[in-house]
Amino acid sequence: MERALFVIFALTAIVAALNVLLRRHPLHSALALLVVLGALAGLYILLGAYFLAMIQVVIYAGAILVLFLFVIMLLNIRAEEARLARRPFLRWLALPFALLLGAEIFYLVRTFEENPVPSGTSVGVTEAIGRELFTTYLLPFEVTSILILIAILGAVVLARRG
């Protein structure tokens, strides 16, 4: 059951990620990324990180992706026409280099073969995360608020200049 769910979520994520890469229209890419984020939320639940799964859906899919979609529709971006690249052969170098990068990461993770993830761990419940966030990681949490403030100011300044 658990493995079946894992395979479903993982395949959904990978196929949707390929769609992000292969679609020509930015709107289709953004919607495919939405599917990836949903599938990753499912994987987080399988890992016992319930709070992060909820945050993934609410913040990533609900706020960030909607921001992307909003900008795409606001600017009325059309599909990119297949214009001639200045160095067309570079495009075909992408595949071997992608395979090389993937192989490197696989080489790094291959050592974790026989260690199963314990299922149903309750380490990611909201209460535990909240307690950690407001005790051990209080300073980073507060600094994050300043970062958000600066980002808001930056966005407003950029918008007003245009």
Binding site: R3, L47, N115
Partner: peptide, 18 residues
């Protein structure tokens, strides 16, 4: 059944590469 940790890492590797 539990899922091997390398499966998750493999999915993450594929997503990162893409």
């Amino acid at each position: 059944t539990t899922i091997p940790i390398s499966w998750y890492l493999a999915v993450a590797a594929v997503l990162f590469t893409i």
